[in-house]
């Protein structure tokens, strides 16, 4: 139960921690107070509780593949919001921000974290809820959960400070890289789930790296959580992964290329005679 809890909790926490720390870095770049994170985590936890609570009936939708469809839907929603986020708020961190723009930023980040926590947290709720039902499982499950959560959160904190430690110019591009990997991961996982639900057709396996880096190793698990590593990806998965990354990159062009018009006006103020 112990190892199991570690692996399960770690995987779910790590995905969320990566997203939250990257978004917190952008919050810092815009000098916005990071209170949204508390609201996002709280609403994500509530969302996860309800999602877990109704998982039984959700699973029976669409001829017993409701779970896959719902999860894929949430992942595509995350990808969609990530695309909007990168188009509007990713590159232009130093241009003057209106309060309206900051509001949009907060709404985006809040939605992203809440949605991602809803999906990942529900699995934690289901697992821990079941494991705690057996008294002999309580201690190993709790210990395992603490260790898994500890590792996940620590990685998040280190990513946060690691990103902030970069030269300011490179923070945005590194953040974009991480967010695009998350985007690719979302697209690929959604594709996989829809294939599992038979909503997408089977496609052949492109390669097999399981002998190099097995998916069930700790590193494999970490890489799965962070960049969506898959030892035996199918053609559609690879395609959707690439599409997800490309989508985020293309959308980010809008925010990276856009010249802040207010800044130009400010520099050309008339000097008194």
């Amino acid at each position: 139960m112990f190892l199991n809890s570690v692996v399960l909790i770690l995987q779910e926490i790590l995905e969320a921690a990566l997203l939250i720390s990257v978004l917190l870095v952008f919050t810092r770049l815009r000098s916005i107070r990071p209170f949204w994170a508390i609201a996002a985590i709280a609403s994500g936890a509530i969302g996860a509780y309800f999602f877990a609570h109704h998982m039984a009936s959700i699973s029976e939708w669409f001829d017993y593949v409701g779970q896959e469809v719902m999860n894929a839907f949430i992942q595509l929603a995350i990808l969609f919001i990530l695309a909007i986020f990168s188009a509007k708020y990713l590159g232009n961190t130093h241009s003057p921000h209106s309060s309206q723009m900051n509001r949009g930023f907060i709404v985006c980040t809040l939605l992203l974290v809440a949605l991602s926590l809803t999906r990942e947290g529900s699995e934690v709720f289901i697992y821990v809820g079941g494991a705690l039902g057996d008294p002999s499982h309580v201690q190993p499950t709790l210990m395992g959960s603490v260790i898994g959560a500890g590792i996940g959160i620590s990685v998040g904190v280190l990513i946060y400070y690691g990103l902030l430690g970069l030269p300011t110019k490179r923070i945005s591009t590194s953040g974009l890289l991480l967010l695009s990997l998350i985007g690719g991961n979302m697209a690929s996982q959604a594709t996989l789930l829809l294939t599992q639900a038979d909503w997408l057709p089977y496609s052949r396996i492109l390669w097999d790296t399981s002998s190099w880096l097995p998916e069930n190793s700790i590193l494999g698990r970490l890489l799965y959580a962070i960049i969506g590593y898959e030892a035996t990806p199918s053609l559609f998965q690879v395609f959707s992964y690439a599409t997800g990354i490309l989508l985020i990159f293309l959308c980010a062009q809008f925010s990276f290329r856009k010249q802040p018009p207010m800044l130009i006006k400010q520099t050309s103020t008339t000097t008194p005679q």
Partner: peptide
Amino acid sequence: SYELNREKVILGNRKGVIF
């Protein structure tokens, strides 16, 4: 299953379909 690339939660006393 890593080999099958499948992952699905089956709740207690419930059933689910995996293709």
